[in-house]
Deep mutational scan, measured.
Amino acid sequence: GHYRIRINGREFEIRGISEEEIRHLEEALRNGADEKILKEIVDRLRG
């Protein structure tokens, strides 16, 4: 998958993330885990 997200007015492209991972992120966001989720995304993109 290849997705664009906007955070604090800046747009980011996220590549190589699966539909299942996105559902997991959405679930966590609904549970209020904003900073933790951003850290997970950044860590994943770093490799």
Rank of each mutant, 00 (worst) to 15 (best):
G1P: 13
G1Y: 11
H2G: 14
R4V: 15
I5F: 05
I5G: 02
I5S: 00
R6G: 02
R6N: 15
I7T: 00
I7H: 02
G9P: 00
G9M: 01
G9W: 01
R10L: 13
R10D: 05
R10W: 08
R10M: 15
E11I: 14
E11H: 05
E11Q: 04
F12S: 00
F12Q: 01
F12L: 05
E13C: 10
E13V: 15
E13N: 05
E13G: 02
E13D: 07
I14Q: 00
I14M: 04
I14V: 07
R15H: 15
R15A: 11
R15T: 09
G16Q: 06
G16H: 12
I17Y: 03
I17M: 05
S18Q: 06
E19R: 12
E19K: 11
E19Q: 11
E19N: 03
E20H: 10
E20K: 08
E21D: 15
E21F: 04
I22K: 08
R23M: 14
H24E: 12
H24A: 11
H24P: 05
H24L: 13
L25D: 00
L25E: 00
E27R: 07
E27T: 12
E27W: 11
A28V: 12
A28M: 14
L29G: 02
L29I: 14
R30M: 10
R30Y: 11
R30Q: 12
N31V: 11
N31P: 04
N31T: 13
N31E: 12
N31W: 09
N31A: 11
G32S: 07
G32A: 06
A33I: 14
D34L: 08
D34H: 09
D34W: 14
D34A: 10
E35A: 11
E35H: 09
E35G: 10
K36A: 12
K36G: 10
K36S: 10
K36F: 11
K36V: 09
I37T: 14
I37C: 04
I37D: 09
I37K: 11
K39R: 10
K39E: 14
K39T: 12
E40Q: 06
E40M: 09
I41T: 03
I41L: 12
I41R: 01
V42T: 04
V42M: 08
D43A: 09
D43T: 06
D43G: 03
D43N: 08
R44C: 13
R44H: 10
R46H: 14
G47S: 09
G47P: 14
G47E: 14
